[in-house]
Design a binder for these strands. Structure first.
Length: 327
RNA sequence: GGAAGGGUGCCCGAGUGGCUAAAGGGGGCGGGCUGUAAACCCGCUGGCUUACGCCUACAUAGGUUCGAAACCUAUCCCUUCCA
């Protein structure tokens, strides 16, 4: 099989069904990556992830670089062995931390200077360094360093930011040195369709193994997110995999697939589970609400998952109140 | 029987004359969460009222004072120590 090959097996409108080949095997698309920022999907073992059908997971360059460090992981046999996950891994570049840790970083042409959120020390992440770190981690798919722009931003800010992201993308491509580590470029451009369009076109000139849409779900209205997803996706090569970063809700995923997106990731399932928001066919419930205290029925009577088959809302409500992490 | 320290809102606990319907926790009630600084964060939590405000409240009963959770007296209860 050819690494980075995206085999589209069926289409329906803009939606596609396919297979993507990596050094740790194939994953089907459309697909959703559970988020394992710190080399663990919070609250879940690899076996449990496989049990629910996870074929690829996401981890994070910034976080693993800070702790425990890519060299430590490398000496322990690489990220897959370290966390005992033998299926594909994609790592985010730290571009999201440019957004989420905005108060702790400074962007220059060279890269991003972060002040560690752990101990305050300074660290510089450049496009080249981020490529290197991900190659050392031994991941299957690396993301190039980008600037995930905050919302709202002016067109001038978005243009400026996009220029940097595109220059960084070119530098990242040049810096690559390991064939088994595939790389995805990232479309930015804020909430400006014309910028998105030109970003997608320009990025497509760089021979990445896939293309991502970043900088959405940063606080903008839902319709705007759809519009930006649409214009970004339709201007990317149709024969390459498309990854919508950080999205999303079940509805977001279904609607984005219809716009031609193939791959997703989001912290929502793991975070909401920890915080007590549980999803059903009919939206979500807050399991801590008083009404569930003695509710003997499952979260979703139509669902055949382990939790729904075996536990009542009353029990789950108790676990949530007692700060127990089981389920 | 004697000595000392205590009794504060659902619970723990700060407060020793006015800025106190009473800090801070916890609990309770509700909300938020989209490439995770996130087992986190934000509201509300005596009663009535839209609000102004009024009423009730810091063991109990009196008292001092313009004003008391706070000072005084009595009573009840709790903890520790001594007999």
């Amino acid at each position: 099989m050819n690494l980075g090959n995206f085999n589209i097996k069926a289409t329906d409108g803009l939606a596609r069904r396919g297979e993507y080949y990596t050094a740790h095997g194939v994953f089907e698309t459309p697909n959703f990556m559970p988020v394992g920022t710190q080399a663990t999907v919070k609250g879940m073992t690899p076996d449990q992830l496989k049990e629910i059908g996870a074929q690829i997971i996401l981890s994070n360059t910034y976080h693993l670089h800070l702790r425990p460090g890519e060299d430590v992981i490398n000496r322990l046999g690489g990220l897959h062995k370290f966390m005992n996950w033998d299926r594909p891994i994609l790592t985010d570049s730290g571009g999201y931390q440019v957004f989420s840790l905005a108060k702790l970083r400074k962007i220059t042409d060279e890269g991003v200077m972060f002040q560690s959120h752990i101990d305050g020390r300074n660290l510089m992440l450049t496009p080249e360094k981020v490529v290197k770190i991900q190659e050392i981690l031994g991941v299957d798919i690396m993301m190039v360093l980008d600037e995930c722009l905050a919302y709202p931003s002016t067109e001038a800010q978005a243009r400026n930011s996009l220029d940097i992201t595109l220059r960084w993308a070119k530098r990242a491509q040049v810096a690559r040195s390991r064939a088994e580590t595939l790389a995805f470029g990232i479309v930015q451009g804020g909430m400006f369709p014309e910028l998105r369009k030109s970003a997608a076109h320009e990025l497509s000139q760089i021979p990445f193994d896939g293309y991502a849409i970043g900088g959405v779900s940063v606080g903008e209205p839902l319709e705007l997110m759809r519009e930006i997803t649409k214009v970004s996706a339709e201007n990317l090569p149709s024969d390459k995999i498309r990854y919508l970063m950080g999205v999303g809700t079940p509805t977001d995923i279904v609607e984005s697939v219809a716009l031609g997106v193939d791959l997703f990731d989001c912290v929502m399932p793991t975070r909401c589970a920890r915080f007590g928001r549980l999803w059903t066919e009919n939206g979500y419930i807050n399991i801590k609400n008083a009404q569930y205290r003695e509710d003997s029925t499952p979260i979703d009577s139509e669902c055949d998952c382990y939790t729904c088959r075996n536990f009542s809302k009353a029990y789950l409500s108790h676990l949530q109140r007692a700060d127990e992490i089981l389920y």
